Computed example of a mutant assay.
Amino acid sequence: MSEEYGPDFISITDEDGNEFELEHVDTIEHKGQVYMAFFPADTDESEEENDEEESGLIILKVVEENGEEQLSTLDSEEELEEVYDRFMEDLFREEEGNEGE
């Protein structure tokens, strides 16, 4: 979807049955794996105060299960750090490119 139409939102359900709405920020491929970055779309101020850690960038990977693409958490802290760094590099590269406009 083109950005001129606004941000992309998805709803996901965690293993406990809690539903969350997320705003898609970016998608990258890293070491042959596709990763997607999101921000929480609906943050309550009270939730934000109690759970500041949860209101940051959320990175999930695309996995195929039973022939269907699904989003999954990352397997390790090292994988998360590598992919987070890649998203940040891309974000800063985009911002630097936009400064001259």
Rank of each mutant, 00 (worst) to 15 (best):
I28L: 11
I28G: 01
I28R: 06
I28A: 03
E29I: 08
H30W: 09
H30T: 03
H30K: 04
H30Q: 07
K31C: 13
K31Y: 10
K31Q: 14
K31H: 11
Q33Y: 11
Y35Q: 06
A37N: 01
F38I: 00
F38C: 00
F39R: 06
F39C: 07
F39M: 15
A41F: 11
A41C: 14
A41W: 08
D42I: 10
T43I: 15
T43N: 11
T43D: 13
D44Q: 06
D44H: 05
E45I: 09
S46C: 09
S46F: 05
E47P: 02
E47H: 15
E48T: 11
N50V: 09
E52N: 13
E52Q: 15
E53L: 13
E53M: 14
E54M: 10
S55T: 15
S55G: 10
G56K: 07
G56A: 11
L57S: 11
L57H: 07
I58R: 01
I58P: 00
L60R: 08
L60P: 00
L60F: 05
L60K: 08
K61F: 08
K61H: 10
V63R: 09
V63A: 10
V63K: 10
V63D: 06
E64V: 15
N66I: 14
N66K: 13
N66W: 15
N66S: 14
G67S: 04
G67H: 07
E69N: 09
E69G: 05
L71P: 01
L71V: 15
S72E: 09
T73C: 10
E77H: 00
E78Q: 06
E78I: 05
E78V: 05
E79G: 02
E79N: 05
E79L: 03
L80Q: 02
L80D: 00
E81Q: 11
E81K: 07
E82W: 05
V83D: 00
Y84M: 03
D85K: 02
D85H: 05
R86G: 00
F87E: 01
F87I: 00
F87L: 01
F87Y: 05
M88Q: 15
M88P: 00
E89Y: 12
E89C: 12
D90S: 05
D90P: 00
L91C: 11
E94C: 15
E94P: 09
E95S: 12
E96I: 09
E96A: 12
E96S: 10
N98E: 10
